[in-house]
Design a protein around this nucleic acid. Structure first.
Lengths: 228, 228
DNA sequence: GCAAAAGTGTTAAAACTACACCCATGA
DNA sequence: TCATGGGTGTAGTTTTAACACTTTTGC
């Protein structure tokens, strides 16, 4: 029974890759960081940031190394999404790929980096043609993000440390692609105890100004109930 | 930048496996089907049903083939759980493994099969020592199962086609490891429209007898709201 | 007739939805 | 002073949670 497995053990000829789905938020829209593919096959198309895993490297580490090498992004917390293993998904050979996703502050990944690395931000409803099955990967990651963003305090990664409630609400509206009632949203936010109000206002978006808040992780860890 | 990836493309030396987490239900407890490991390393311990993926085989197909070869189970619907990629997780070499999980009717996988394939059912809170990181895999799959069983009609796979509501409730209590109020449970079940009552009673568990029901997938597909 | 499991309703609390006006400020 | 976005409360509805007795039947 196991002999069959042993055969594969000797002869397996496939490669394992990671692909990173990097979300940002800009102009009230969810965006994705893509990279221009400069080699065949599918040269010239856009692609997720991906590469092959090293022999002695944890899968999670590989995702971080690849991301760093190809985009300059460092110390990014990524979560595994799923593994894509159709036999013919990559036309250059047998490649299985595990996707990871992360949310970053777009303002920290600026024009300079973007041009140095041949990357570009795209709003998620204006994606260019992607290589292989990267489109499916992206859609799967977006679905996962929409599910998780309601139950875990992960969306704050897309905002600066100090943010206003109107900003937060627009972020949720952008991610979920739906409008949310302002008063209900604020009530829910306040019921959870981990947003701390500052005495300082953001005067850049309105005459009146909106108070800044920050997310207090220690407070969140006490209760860990999150529901938006 | 991409050159580095190219190097890996030439020299990558790792193997990709699948491991199957097979759930059953018996004696009001959730059980797991494990296989006795008959080879080194870790010979003699218990293990998930796993094997290596073929060069031209979809990852999903590999899971099914491996499951069939090692257990005789066929045409089982499995869902991918996640991929385990710590560099040193398998002491026999670099192996990355993707886990799949399935729920089957234990009565259809009988004593005969169990002894023919060196497998055995274990209640999930009485698992033996498992090889490598299989324990983590199991725990992750159980967490996922508990999440999904509330929102999708997947638990019916663990019951015969015709089942009673007391049976269904005990199944949920077993999976979730909590007690559920009988009246609230029944109300919720009836609010969803896809359980069809039969005129026939199961007289084997009580004097009074409990009506049989079956899950009507077509009815479920009309609404697809599920919440237990 | 009694033991054992199946079946059945109501009430209070909590969560959710919809909705409209005043406030603070810079121009 | 007015235009703009920030901020606030209430009422109706729905969902959830807690809880106890009657029914059926084989023995």
């Amino acid at each position: 029974m196991r002999i069959e497995s042993r055969i594969y053990e000797e002869t397996q000829k496939l490669k394992l890759a990671v692909d990173c789905i990097i979300f940002g938020f800009n102009d009230n829209r969810l965006e994705l960081l893509l990279i221009h593919r400069g080699f065949e096959p599918e040269k010239g198309k856009w692609s997720l940031i991906g590469g092959f895993i090293g022999n002695d490297e944890d899968l999670d580490e590989a995702a971080n190394r690849v991301l760093y090498n190809l985009s300059g992004l460092q110390n990014i917390y990524m979560e595994q999404v799923r593994t894509w293993g159709k036999a013919n998904r990559d036309t250059s050979g047998r490649v299985i790929s595990t996707t990871y996703s992360a949310m970053i502050l777009k303002s920290e990944y600026d024009e300079e980096k973007v041009s140095a690395y041949n990357t570009k931000w795209f709003p998620i409803d204006e994606l260019p043609e992607l290589v292989f099955d990267h489109r499916d990967m992206v859609e799967s990651a977006i679905r996962r993000l929409r599910r998780r963003v309601r139950n875990f305090p992960i969306a704050f990664n897309l905002l600066p440390q100090k943010f206003t409630l109107p900003q937060l609400q627009m972020l949720y509206e952008g991610i979920l692609n739906e409008t949310i009632d302002k008063r209900n949203f604020r009530r829910k936010v306040f019921q959870m105890k981990f947003l701390v109000k500052l005495d300082e206002k953001d005067m850049s978006e309105s005459r009146k100004g909106a108070y800044f808040y920050y997310f207090d992780e220690a407070l969140y860890n006490k209760e860990q109930n999150f529901n938006l």
